[in-house]
Every structure is written in C-alpha cells, then in structure tokens.
Amino acid sequence: MLTLHSYWRSSAAYRVRIALSLKGLEFAQVTHDLRQNAHLEPGYRALNPQHLVPALDTGDAVLTQSPAILEWLEETHPEPALLPSTPSSRAIVRSMCDLIACDIHPLNNLRVLRELKTEFGADASRLDLWARGWIAEGFTALEVLVEKHGQGFCFGDTPTLADCFLIPQIFSAQRFGVDLRPYPALRAVNERCDEHPAFVRAHPIHQPDADQVDS
C-alpha cells in the first residue's frame, strides 16, 4: 500500500492525489496540519528532511517533491499515460508543469507568505496582492500554451501531468481572489476536470483532514 503524507489544502499534495486517482491506485493518507506546524515534528522530519508535504512512502523508498513523485508514478504505472507519446509533446507538457511548479507556486505557498508577514510586515491585503500578481503573470503565459495545445485538457483530449499541476493552482488562485475571466482556456480545463471522477476524488474538500468550513 502506498502511503501519502499530505495536507488537504497543499497544492503539491493535491497534484499527487490527482495522479494517484488518475492511475487508479489505492493509497493511505497521513495528514499533517501545516497551520499547526505538524510537518516540523521530529518524526516527520526524520522521514522527509525538508519537512514539506507531500512525501510518498512506496514501501521501498520515501519519495519527496511532487514533480519527482509524479514522474515515478508515470514510470512505474505507465497506464493510463499522463505524458504524450513524442519527445516534443512530453517536453511541452513538462514545460507547463514547470511553469506552475517553479514560477507560480513557490511564490505563494504558506512558508513564503509567512515570511512576508513576519519579516516584512505584510498584512493580509498585501499578501493577497502579492499572490495574485505572480499567479496572474504565470496564468497569462500558460493560457497561450493551453489555447494552442489543449483539446479539452491542458494538452490534447486526455489528462496529462499538466492538468495535475493546473487544477491545484486554480484552486489556490480562487482562494486568493484571482480574476479568472482573462483565462478562458484555463477555465475550460478546470470545468472539464470538475466533472472528472479522478479530479473530484482528489479535491481538497474531500480529504479526511479538510476543514468543515474553509475560513
């Protein structure tokens, strides 16, 4: 049995849940409330020295960093494929993933926002403004790629790793109040995924540690 160390609202953990669900893989969850610094407890730090979520215990190894975990899932459970068949197409999908994982998400995750608040005195309105700005810049570029390559999903007419990255980032964008109207291609993918059982199962509100009412 795979064991996913997770937090319901973590975008990176959400990516892994989507991929596991798309692959039809059963997994157990161990949850760590990041707001309560549960990920800093010694037991978890011993498992993942970076003390971040997610971490995936495969039984043979503990894997960290969501892009690496998703690549491992694709290599070890190749069906259904979440990468296209040609090298160029795979590179395009990975570029979409990296645009989110490298250029959007790190700038609006919890530990960065905490640093901006505690060390630089940013209040809630400035934190939201910061997050919205970086998300909008990334989504503007991603919109062009998805409009060009998507046919219902980010790339083509079936889910890929790019969708595993996009949907959690849209969930985060909505929390920060990002106006999604300028991104019709991204919104169309999100609406398609809202109806896909694998994405529904992976949604934060359906996780065992989800807040009853998200404040």
Rank of each mutant, 00 (worst) to 15 (best):
A12Y: 00
Y14E: 11
R15F: 00
R17W: 00
L20C: 12
S21H: 01
L22E: 07
A28D: 15
H32Q: 11
E41N: 07
L47M: 14
Q50R: 15
Q50F: 14
H51M: 04
V53C: 07
D57V: 06
T58H: 05
Q65D: 12
Q65S: 00
L70K: 04
L70A: 06
W72N: 07
P78D: 15
P78A: 15
E79I: 11
P80G: 03
P84E: 03
S85W: 03
T86R: 13
T86H: 14
A91K: 07
I92S: 14
I92W: 14
R94K: 11
C97D: 06
C102H: 09
D103L: 10
D103N: 14
P106I: 05
P106Q: 06
L110S: 07
R111T: 12
L113T: 10
L116I: 13
F120L: 15
L129N: 13
W130S: 02
W130P: 01
I135N: 09
I135A: 09
A136I: 12
F139P: 00
L142H: 02
E147A: 15
G152M: 07
G152F: 04
T160H: 04
T160W: 04
D163I: 01
D163E: 06
C164Q: 04
L166Q: 04
P168G: 07
I170A: 00
I170Y: 01
S172E: 14
S172Y: 04
F176N: 11
V178A: 09
D179I: 04
L186A: 05
V189L: 01
E191C: 11
F199K: 00
R201C: 09
H206D: 09
Q207T: 03
Q207S: 07
D209A: 09
A210V: 07
A210K: 12
